[in-house]
Write a protein that binds this DNA or RNA. Structure first.
Length: 541
RNA sequence: GCGCCCGUAGCUCAAUUGGAUAGAGCGACGGACUACGAAUCCGUAGGCUGGGGGUUCGAGUCCCUCCGGGCGCGCCA
């Protein structure tokens, strides 16, 4: 039944590449992409421009010959091959598009899977908030991007495991514990001045009450407080449909062999020096702007030191690559970490992505947030106000490099102005169309797909065909945002089609069967695409 | 001062990473349900892509420079 190649895009690329080699003895990369406009065909490549310099013949001659050769080889799947203003355009036959529909509906779970990753084993760390308070909205954005990326990359042939790192040690934890103690004393009626670097925030009062109730001993306070907050963070993330494969605590790292291992390797390689009683790492040997302290004058390790140990630990677990998603305040840290891992013998094993800031808008005004005063908008509050789906979708509407204005009022609105409903409505509408068909004894059928003659129908089939390419792009660029854009475009043409044409029509059972088959394919792809970004596909809204 | 991100329609943002005539939504104006969900659709108006220079077949995209906005630059984490 399957008459089309496993991966259309790569198939076309290989055909043209081979033809160039056999006809002109030229080797070059050929990339096909969706044409900017449907009038140009379906797939287009600009390799002729790139080739221009290395060719003796005029570009048009080469184009003409390639066009003929490629057409010959693609007769079974394409209608037209042409060169226009330097682009090689290919228009696939309707039969090919029909087979795409069959592929989708025969195996909805598999459609869109690609093997971009070739099984590369990846550790993806994101959020990793300090256990000093509830998760804020920047963490929410990182969670949305990170978790979607994991889903997408796993669908694209990678083996991705997600990880949360909790810095439950160090000075900030001392400050945190001091703040909790202040609350404990206050509850017991002992008034003292609030710790200088303490954490404000009512959530610490609840923890203090629990400590009194459970009679937690003094030496277990730090552990109890950080674990309580960590568990609360993970619980909130679960409500956000974010599950982690691994959770690692800094206390675990500190007690492990890895800090010692880091010191030993750096010492043996002579990447350390001593000054003012402190131990420095020669980060400048690896592109950083200055040497970095790893052991302070007082003999304690820096945050960077234990972070190096943590990353060494991750690498020794066998990953091919580490990916970290960090907030915008960490970009100064990238060079340092890359330098450190290179020195430890793992060059180019880490990719650090920065997710930009989030501003929350309410009533058209930015909400002011101050961590110090304990005033910030939490992920929990966001979930309560706009819901999981709108929150996740909104965080993916911009590329991760851009600042994001999150308009809470808009996210709560219902209608096209709120894109998440626009997309989910496409799924609900497909579902009710299929149901409506059943009530009239009309079912999706692939026997008369040639009746799908309308330009809008071709547009939809074409878009469905591009889904695997979209998954590949999103994975390679590490931009979940690509999936969101795809859904919005598909929704546009689908709603347009629906509005103009009747799908279920008892007078025309054959046409109805074909159209319902198309609708079923749309529903299947939308459901899958939404699952890749962790958004529900409702059948009723 | 140094480093990173951003500047595109009145507003919020896209633009297949250097490609074809720069596109959507909101807002404004005008239309479409006695047929499958109007949470939808169709149309009109709106642009010197912050300014200037460069690179080339081709620049919103790359380089230089200036202007404007955000963030970061601890033996904090």
């Amino acid at each position: 039944m399957e008459q089309i190649p496993e991966n259309l895009k790569h198939y076309l690329e290989n055909i043209v590449k081979d033809t160039l080699k056999s006809t002109f003895n030229v080797e070059t990369e050929v990339v096909f992409e969706e044409t900017s406009k449907p009038e140009y065909g379906d797939y287009s490549s600009n390799f002729l421009f790139r080739l221009k310099k290395g060719l003796s013949e005029p570009i048009q001659t080469v184009g003409d010959i390639i066009t003929l050769e490629v057409m010959k080889k693609l007769q079974h799947i394409a209608d037209e091959v042409s060169t226009q203003t330097g682009f090689l355009n290919i228009k696939l036959s309707n039969k090919t598009l029909h087979n795409v529909l069959r592929r989708i509906n025969n195996n909805p779970e598999e459609y869109g899977k690609v093997d971009t990753g070739h099984g590369e084993y990846i550790n993806l760390e994101f959020v990793s908030a300090n256990p000093t308070g509830p998760l804020n909205v920047v963490s929410a954005r990182a969670a949305s991007v990170g978790d979607s990326l994991k889903r997408i990359m796993n669908f694209a042939g990678y083996r991705v495991e997600s990880e949360f790192y909790s810095n439950n040690a160090g000075r900030q934890v001392e400050n945190l514990v001091a703040s909790v103690k202040w609350w404990i004393n206050k509850i017991k009626g002992i008034e003292e001045p609030f710790p200088l670097e303490g954490y404000r925030g009512e959530y610490l009062k609840d923890i203090a009450e629990k400590i009194i109730e459970k009679k937690i001993p003094e030496d277990k306070l730090a552990e109890f407080v950080t674990d309580t907050i960590l568990n609360d963070q993970l619980e909130t993330l679960r409500e956000f449909d974010v599950e982690y494969d691994h959770v690692t605590k800094e206390t675990f790292i500190r007690e492990s062999k890895y800090p010692g291992l880091v010191l030993r390797i750096l010492k043996e390689e002579k990447f350390l020096f001593f000054e003012d009683g402190a131990t420095f790492f020669r980060a400048t040997d690896f592109g950083d702007t200055e040497p970095r302290v790893i052991i302070r004058r007082d003999g304690t390790g820096t945050y960077f030191f234990y972070d190096l140990a943590y990353h060494l630990y991750k690498l020794q677990r066998g990953y091919d690559r580490l990916i970290n998603i960090l907030g915008p305040d960490h970009h100064g840290y990238i060079k340092r970490m890359e330098a450190g891992l290179t020195a430890l013998g793992y060059p180019k094993k880490i990719k650090i992505m920065i997710v930009q800031q989030v501003s929350l808008l309410k009533n058209g005004e930015k909400i002011k947030m101050s961590k110090r005063r304990g005033e910030f908008y939490t992920l929990k509050e966001l979930l309560r106000e706009v819901g999981k789906d709108a929150a996740r979708f909104f965080f993916l509407m911009r590329t991760k490099d851009a600042h994001l204005d999150f308009d809470i009022d808009l996210a709560r609105k219902i209608g096209k102005e709120n894109p998440v409903y626009y997309v989910q409505y496409m799924h609900a509408r497909s579902h009710s169309l299929l149901k409506h068909g059943e009530e009239n004894s009309l079912y999706p059928k692939d026997s008369n797909l040639r009746l799908l003659q309308l330009p809008e129908e071709r547009l939809i089939m074409r878009k469905l065909m591009f889904f695997p390419d979209t998954v590949e792009r999103a994975a390679l660029r590490m931009e979940p945002h690509e999936i969101v854009r795809y859904l919005l475009q598909l929704a546009d043409i689908f709603h347009n089609y629906y509005q103009k044409n009747r799908i279920v029509n008892k007078e025309k059972p054959e046409l109805s069967g074909a159209r319902l088959y198309l609708v079923l394919a749309v529903k299947n792809v939308v459901k899958r695409a939404l699952s890749l970004i962790g958004v529900d596909a409702p059948v009723k809204m």
